[in-house]
Amino acid sequence: MVSPHVHSDILITGGCGFLGRKLILSLLARTQLPGRIVVLDAFPPSPPSTAISHDTVPIVYRTGSILDTKVLNEVITSSTTCIYHLAAVVSAQAEQDWNLGMQVNFDGTRAIAERCLELGIKPVVVFTSSLAVYGGEVVKNCSEDSHIMPQSSYGAEKAMCELLLSDLSRRGLLDARILRLPTIAIRPGKPNAAASVFISGIVREPLQHKQKTVLPVDEKTLIWIASPRSAIKALVHASVVPRETLVDAQGSRRSVITLPGLSTTPRDLIDAMVRVGGGDASLVEKKPDPKIEAIVGTWPGDIDTPWAKSLGFEVDKNVDDIVKIFVEDDMH
Protein backbone atom coordinates (compact mmCIF):
# COMPACT_ATOMS: atom_id res chain seq x y z
CA MET A 1 0.00 0.00 0.00
CA VAL A 2 1.28 3.47 -0.90
CA SER A 3 1.67 5.71 2.12
CA PRO A 4 -0.61 8.78 2.10
CA HIS A 5 2.19 10.84 3.61
CA VAL A 6 4.53 13.17 1.82
CA HIS A 7 7.83 12.66 3.63
CA SER A 8 8.42 16.29 4.56
CA ASP A 9 7.90 18.86 7.25
CA ILE A 10 5.64 21.87 7.00
CA LEU A 11 6.35 24.90 9.18
CA ILE A 12 3.60 27.40 10.00
CA THR A 13 4.73 30.61 11.70
CA GLY A 14 2.01 32.42 13.59
CA GLY A 15 0.25 29.08 13.56
CA CYS A 16 -1.73 29.54 16.77
CA GLY A 17 -3.79 32.37 15.31
CA PHE A 18 -7.19 31.74 13.81
CA LEU A 19 -5.90 31.49 10.24
CA GLY A 20 -3.07 29.21 11.35
CA ARG A 21 -5.48 26.84 13.05
CA LYS A 22 -7.74 26.72 9.98
CA LEU A 23 -4.69 26.11 7.79
CA ILE A 24 -3.60 23.13 9.90
CA LEU A 25 -7.06 21.57 9.66
CA SER A 26 -7.12 22.14 5.91
CA LEU A 27 -3.70 20.52 5.43
CA LEU A 28 -4.82 17.51 7.46
CA ALA A 29 -7.90 17.12 5.27
CA ARG A 30 -5.83 16.67 2.10
CA THR A 31 -5.22 13.33 0.42
CA GLN A 32 -1.46 13.71 0.66
CA LEU A 33 -0.45 14.34 4.25
CA PRO A 34 2.77 15.96 5.43
CA GLY A 35 5.21 13.93 7.46
CA ARG A 36 5.04 16.49 10.25
CA ILE A 37 3.56 19.92 10.94
CA VAL A 38 5.60 22.31 13.07
CA VAL A 39 3.70 25.26 14.52
CA LEU A 40 5.74 28.25 15.68
CA ASP A 41 4.05 31.10 17.52
CA ALA A 42 4.99 33.73 20.05
CA PHE A 43 2.13 32.43 22.19
CA PRO A 44 1.01 28.87 23.00
CA PRO A 45 -2.43 27.60 21.97
CA SER A 46 -5.01 29.30 24.18
CA PRO A 47 -6.72 27.54 25.76
CA PRO A 48 -4.40 24.51 25.53
CA SER A 49 -7.36 22.38 24.45
CA THR A 50 -7.34 24.17 21.09
CA ALA A 51 -4.05 22.48 20.17
CA ILE A 52 -4.72 20.19 17.20
CA SER A 53 -3.67 16.54 17.18
CA HIS A 54 -3.78 13.88 14.47
CA ASP A 55 -3.63 10.07 14.45
CA THR A 56 -0.76 9.78 11.98
CA VAL A 57 0.72 13.25 11.47
CA PRO A 58 2.82 14.57 14.38
CA ILE A 59 1.97 18.19 15.14
CA VAL A 60 4.68 19.94 17.12
CA TYR A 61 3.95 23.25 18.84
CA ARG A 62 6.91 25.49 19.62
CA THR A 63 6.46 28.75 21.52
CA GLY A 64 9.12 31.31 20.66
CA SER A 65 10.23 34.16 18.44
CA ILE A 66 11.19 34.02 14.79
CA LEU A 67 14.04 36.33 15.81
CA ASP A 68 15.52 33.66 18.10
CA THR A 69 18.24 31.78 16.23
CA LYS A 70 17.97 28.76 18.51
CA VAL A 71 14.23 28.52 17.89
CA LEU A 72 14.60 28.81 14.11
CA ASN A 73 17.30 26.14 14.13
CA GLU A 74 14.82 23.81 15.83
CA VAL A 75 11.82 24.45 13.58
CA ILE A 76 13.58 24.73 10.20
CA THR A 77 15.57 21.60 9.37
CA SER A 78 16.81 19.76 6.32
CA SER A 79 13.39 18.04 6.23
CA THR A 80 11.47 21.32 5.85
CA THR A 81 9.97 21.52 2.38
CA CYS A 82 7.20 24.09 2.89
CA ILE A 83 6.93 27.18 5.09
CA TYR A 84 3.74 29.15 5.60
CA HIS A 85 4.95 32.44 7.02
CA LEU A 86 1.92 34.06 8.66
CA ALA A 87 3.55 35.65 11.71
CA ALA A 88 3.43 39.46 11.70
CA VAL A 89 2.92 42.60 13.70
CA VAL A 90 -0.32 44.04 12.32
CA SER A 91 -0.90 47.40 10.67
CA ALA A 92 -1.85 49.87 13.42
CA GLN A 93 0.61 48.27 15.86
CA ALA A 94 3.42 48.50 13.31
CA GLU A 95 2.56 52.15 12.72
CA GLN A 96 2.71 52.86 16.45
CA ASP A 97 5.93 50.91 17.13
CA TRP A 98 8.32 51.15 14.16
CA ASN A 99 11.07 49.07 15.75
CA LEU A 100 8.75 46.20 16.65
CA GLY A 101 7.21 46.18 13.18
CA MET A 102 10.60 46.14 11.45
CA GLN A 103 12.00 43.47 13.75
CA VAL A 104 9.14 41.01 13.42
CA ASN A 105 7.89 41.73 9.91
CA PHE A 106 11.15 42.28 8.03
CA ASP A 107 14.01 41.01 10.21
CA GLY A 108 11.98 37.90 11.09
CA THR A 109 11.36 37.13 7.42
CA ARG A 110 15.03 37.62 6.62
CA ALA A 111 15.99 35.33 9.50
CA ILE A 112 13.78 32.57 8.10
CA ALA A 113 15.34 33.01 4.65
CA GLU A 114 18.86 32.98 6.06
CA ARG A 115 18.19 29.76 7.98
CA CYS A 116 17.08 28.11 4.73
CA LEU A 117 20.20 29.38 2.96
CA GLU A 118 22.39 28.10 5.80
CA LEU A 119 20.93 24.61 5.40
CA GLY A 120 21.02 24.74 1.61
CA ILE A 121 17.32 23.86 1.37
CA LYS A 122 14.92 25.42 -1.11
CA PRO A 123 11.45 25.10 0.41
CA VAL A 124 8.24 26.51 -0.95
CA VAL A 125 7.68 29.66 1.11
CA VAL A 126 4.11 30.93 1.15
CA PHE A 127 4.30 34.46 2.52
CA THR A 128 1.28 36.53 3.49
CA SER A 129 1.72 40.06 2.21
CA SER A 130 -1.00 42.69 2.11
CA LEU A 131 -2.89 45.17 -0.04
CA ALA A 132 -1.20 47.77 2.20
CA VAL A 133 1.79 47.70 -0.19
CA TYR A 134 -0.29 49.86 -2.54
CA GLY A 135 -0.96 53.56 -1.97
CA GLY A 136 -1.14 57.00 -3.51
CA GLU A 137 -3.11 57.49 -6.70
CA VAL A 138 -2.88 53.76 -7.42
CA VAL A 139 -5.71 53.03 -4.97
CA LYS A 140 -8.23 54.69 -7.31
CA ASN A 141 -7.47 52.43 -10.28
CA CYS A 142 -5.57 49.42 -8.99
CA SER A 143 -4.56 46.18 -10.66
CA GLU A 144 -2.22 43.35 -9.77
CA ASP A 145 0.37 45.04 -12.02
CA SER A 146 0.17 48.45 -10.32
CA HIS A 147 3.32 49.85 -8.76
CA ILE A 148 3.59 49.52 -5.02
CA MET A 149 3.69 52.72 -2.98
CA PRO A 150 3.03 51.87 0.69
CA GLN A 151 1.77 54.69 2.88
CA SER A 152 2.27 52.93 6.23
CA SER A 153 5.13 51.23 8.04
CA TYR A 154 3.29 47.92 7.84
CA GLY A 155 2.89 48.26 4.08
CA ALA A 156 6.56 49.23 3.70
CA GLU A 157 7.67 46.21 5.74
CA LYS A 158 5.54 43.86 3.65
CA ALA A 159 6.89 45.43 0.45
CA MET A 160 10.46 44.94 1.65
CA CYS A 161 9.72 41.28 2.33
CA GLU A 162 8.22 40.92 -1.13
CA LEU A 163 11.42 42.23 -2.72
CA LEU A 164 13.63 40.05 -0.52
CA LEU A 165 11.76 36.82 -1.20
CA SER A 166 11.29 37.63 -4.90
CA ASP A 167 15.03 38.12 -5.32
CA LEU A 168 15.81 34.83 -3.57
CA SER A 169 13.31 33.09 -5.86
CA ARG A 170 14.83 34.74 -8.93
CA ARG A 171 18.20 33.39 -7.85
CA GLY A 172 16.75 29.91 -7.35
CA LEU A 173 17.53 29.89 -3.64
CA LEU A 174 13.92 29.62 -2.47
CA ASP A 175 10.55 29.00 -4.08
CA ALA A 176 8.49 31.91 -2.75
CA ARG A 177 4.79 32.37 -3.38
CA ILE A 178 3.90 35.81 -2.04
CA LEU A 179 0.19 36.40 -1.52
CA ARG A 180 -1.16 39.93 -1.20
CA LEU A 181 -4.18 39.17 0.94
CA PRO A 182 -7.33 41.24 1.01
CA THR A 183 -8.63 42.15 4.46
CA ILE A 184 -9.89 38.88 5.98
CA ALA A 185 -13.47 39.10 7.20
CA ILE A 186 -15.14 38.06 9.31
CA ARG A 187 -12.51 37.27 11.97
CA PRO A 188 -13.74 35.56 15.14
CA GLY A 189 -12.46 36.19 18.64
CA LYS A 190 -11.18 39.32 20.29
CA PRO A 191 -10.23 42.42 18.26
CA ASN A 192 -6.52 42.80 17.47
CA ALA A 193 -4.42 45.90 16.74
CA ALA A 194 -4.99 45.94 12.98
CA ALA A 195 -6.35 49.14 11.43
CA SER A 196 -8.89 46.97 9.60
CA VAL A 197 -10.24 45.35 12.78
CA PHE A 198 -13.51 47.27 12.51
CA ILE A 199 -14.41 45.43 9.28
CA SER A 200 -14.95 42.23 11.22
CA GLY A 201 -16.20 44.03 14.31
CA ILE A 202 -19.22 45.65 12.66
CA VAL A 203 -20.55 42.16 11.91
CA ARG A 204 -19.15 40.03 14.73
CA GLU A 205 -19.99 42.21 17.71
CA PRO A 206 -23.69 42.89 16.97
CA LEU A 207 -24.27 39.38 15.64
CA GLN A 208 -22.32 37.19 18.03
CA HIS A 209 -21.82 39.20 21.19
CA LYS A 210 -24.90 41.46 20.97
CA GLN A 211 -22.82 44.47 21.92
CA LYS A 212 -21.94 47.87 20.52
CA THR A 213 -19.00 48.44 18.24
CA VAL A 214 -17.46 51.41 16.45
CA LEU A 215 -17.24 52.19 12.74
CA PRO A 216 -14.23 54.58 12.49
CA VAL A 217 -14.47 55.32 8.74
CA ASP A 218 -17.19 56.52 6.39
CA GLU A 219 -19.74 53.77 5.78
CA LYS A 220 -19.31 54.16 2.00
CA THR A 221 -15.53 53.56 2.07
CA LEU A 222 -14.60 50.89 -0.47
CA ILE A 223 -12.89 47.89 1.12
CA TRP A 224 -11.30 44.81 -0.46
CA ILE A 225 -12.13 41.69 1.55
CA ALA A 226 -12.09 37.90 1.47
CA SER A 227 -13.53 35.28 3.78
CA PRO A 228 -11.31 33.03 5.92
CA ARG A 229 -12.41 30.10 3.73
CA SER A 230 -11.12 31.82 0.61
CA ALA A 231 -7.89 32.80 2.35
CA ILE A 232 -7.17 29.24 3.49
CA LYS A 233 -7.94 27.83 0.05
CA ALA A 234 -5.55 30.38 -1.41
CA LEU A 235 -2.75 29.52 1.03
CA VAL A 236 -2.99 25.81 0.28
CA HIS A 237 -3.38 26.36 -3.45
CA ALA A 238 -0.36 28.66 -3.53
CA SER A 239 1.88 25.88 -2.24
CA VAL A 240 0.98 23.56 -5.13
CA VAL A 241 0.77 25.97 -8.08
CA PRO A 242 3.31 24.65 -10.61
CA ARG A 243 6.51 26.67 -10.44
CA GLU A 244 6.66 27.00 -14.22
CA THR A 245 3.39 28.96 -14.27
CA LEU A 246 4.77 31.67 -11.99
CA VAL A 247 6.30 33.77 -14.75
CA ASP A 248 5.53 37.08 -16.44
CA ALA A 249 4.97 37.71 -20.15
CA GLN A 250 8.74 37.83 -20.70
CA GLY A 251 9.28 34.49 -18.95
CA SER A 252 10.88 35.98 -15.82
CA ARG A 253 10.02 34.62 -12.38
CA ARG A 254 6.92 36.26 -10.88
CA SER A 255 6.50 35.45 -7.20
CA VAL A 256 3.91 38.02 -6.09
CA ILE A 257 0.23 37.14 -6.46
CA THR A 258 -2.43 39.71 -5.63
CA LEU A 259 -5.36 37.60 -4.50
CA PRO A 260 -8.86 38.17 -5.85
CA GLY A 261 -11.23 39.75 -3.37
CA LEU A 262 -14.66 41.26 -3.01
CA SER A 263 -15.10 45.03 -3.29
CA THR A 264 -17.73 46.24 -0.85
CA THR A 265 -18.39 48.87 1.83
CA PRO A 266 -19.01 48.85 5.58
CA ARG A 267 -22.60 49.79 4.82
CA ASP A 268 -23.01 46.71 2.63
CA LEU A 269 -21.52 44.51 5.37
CA ILE A 270 -23.85 45.92 8.01
CA ASP A 271 -26.85 45.38 5.74
CA ALA A 272 -25.75 41.78 5.09
CA MET A 273 -25.31 41.23 8.83
CA VAL A 274 -28.93 42.27 9.34
CA ARG A 275 -30.23 40.39 6.30
CA VAL A 276 -28.37 37.11 6.81
CA GLY A 277 -27.93 36.92 10.57
CA GLY A 278 -30.69 39.11 11.95
CA GLY A 279 -28.21 41.38 13.74
CA ASP A 280 -29.01 44.81 15.14
CA ALA A 281 -27.52 47.59 13.00
CA SER A 282 -28.14 50.14 15.77
CA LEU A 283 -25.27 48.53 17.71
CA VAL A 284 -22.80 49.95 15.15
CA GLU A 285 -21.78 53.44 16.26
CA LYS A 286 -20.33 55.80 13.66
CA LYS A 287 -17.32 57.44 15.28
CA PRO A 288 -14.69 58.74 12.82
CA ASP A 289 -11.06 58.11 13.78
CA PRO A 290 -8.63 60.22 11.71
CA LYS A 291 -5.71 57.84 12.37
CA ILE A 292 -7.62 54.80 11.13
CA GLU A 293 -9.10 56.75 8.22
CA ALA A 294 -5.59 57.85 7.21
CA ILE A 295 -4.33 54.25 7.07
CA VAL A 296 -7.39 52.62 5.50
CA GLY A 297 -7.67 55.45 2.97
CA THR A 298 -4.36 54.38 1.41
CA TRP A 299 -5.63 50.87 0.69
CA PRO A 300 -7.29 50.04 -2.64
CA GLY A 301 -10.97 49.15 -2.42
CA ASP A 302 -11.00 47.27 -5.71
CA ILE A 303 -8.20 45.45 -7.54
CA ASP A 304 -8.20 43.84 -10.98
CA THR A 305 -6.61 40.36 -10.64
CA PRO A 306 -6.89 38.43 -13.95
CA TRP A 307 -3.51 36.67 -13.60
CA ALA A 308 -4.30 35.38 -10.11
CA LYS A 309 -7.65 34.07 -11.33
CA SER A 310 -5.93 32.35 -14.25
CA LEU A 311 -3.79 30.48 -11.71
CA GLY A 312 -6.90 29.11 -10.07
CA PHE A 313 -7.34 31.48 -7.14
CA GLU A 314 -11.01 32.03 -6.34
CA VAL A 315 -13.10 34.86 -4.93
CA ASP A 316 -16.14 34.96 -2.63
CA LYS A 317 -19.42 35.38 -4.51
CA ASN A 318 -20.99 38.22 -2.55
CA VAL A 319 -21.17 40.00 0.79
CA ASP A 320 -23.99 37.74 2.01
CA ASP A 321 -21.67 34.75 1.63
CA ILE A 322 -19.05 36.55 3.73
CA VAL A 323 -21.53 36.76 6.62
CA LYS A 324 -22.88 33.23 6.04
CA ILE A 325 -19.38 31.77 6.26
CA PHE A 326 -18.83 33.49 9.60
CA VAL A 327 -22.13 32.15 10.94
CA GLU A 328 -21.40 28.62 9.73
CA ASP A 329 -17.71 28.37 10.60
CA ASP A 330 -16.92 30.65 13.50
CA MET A 331 -19.99 31.91 15.33
CA HIS A 332 -20.12 29.87 18.52
Rank of each mutant, 00 (worst) to 15 (best):
G278H: 01
L235Q: 00
V296C: 04
D41F: 03
P242Y: 05
D9P: 08
V126L: 07
R204C: 00
S230E: 12
D316E: 04
A308Y: 02
H85G: 13
H147I: 13
D145K: 08
L215G: 08
K158I: 04
G20C: 08
I112H: 15
I325V: 13
G301E: 10
G279V: 13
I322L: 09
A234E: 04
D218P: 00
R30T: 15
C161Q: 00
R253D: 03
V240Y: 01
A308Q: 06
I76D: 05
V247H: 07
I270W: 03
T109Q: 00
H209I: 02
R267H: 11
D167T: 05
L164C: 10
P45F: 14
P206M: 02
E157H: 12
D268A: 14
E219L: 04
V90M: 15
L117Y: 11
D175I: 10
P290G: 10
F127Q: 01
D97W: 14
A111M: 14
R229E: 15
A231E: 00
R254H: 10
T109Y: 00
L119C: 05
C116Y: 06
D167M: 06
P300H: 00
L173I: 10
E314T: 10
T13Y: 07
P191D: 12
V274L: 12
P288F: 11
H147V: 11
F43Q: 11
D304A: 12
G15T: 14
D304L: 12
E157W: 09
T221Q: 09
P290Q: 06
D329M: 10
R254D: 03
I66R: 07
D218K: 08
T245I: 09
S310E: 01
V274W: 08
L119H: 15
K287P: 01
L164M: 12
S146R: 05
D175V: 07
V241L: 03
L283F: 08
R187P: 14
G35W: 02
I202S: 03
T56M: 13
E328G: 00
R115S: 02
R267P: 03
D175W: 07
V197P: 11
M331S: 00
S65D: 13
E137D: 10
I223V: 04
K122Y: 06
S255P: 11
E114K: 09
G201L: 01
D304N: 15
L163I: 11
Q211C: 01
V138K: 06
D9H: 15
T77M: 05
I303V: 14
P306T: 08
S153Y: 10
P58E: 14
A193E: 08
S79Q: 14
G108D: 01
M273G: 10
V126M: 01
Y134P: 02
K210D: 05
I121M: 04
E244N: 15
L164S: 13
V124L: 05
V276P: 15
V125F: 06
R177T: 12
S196D: 03
G278V: 00
A111P: 02
V319E: 02
T77A: 06
K220V: 13
A238L: 00
T31C: 09
T13M: 05
I322A: 10
E137S: 11
I325W: 15
Q208W: 04
A185W: 03
S130C: 08
A132I: 02
T245P: 09
I10W: 13
L117F: 03
Y84M: 09
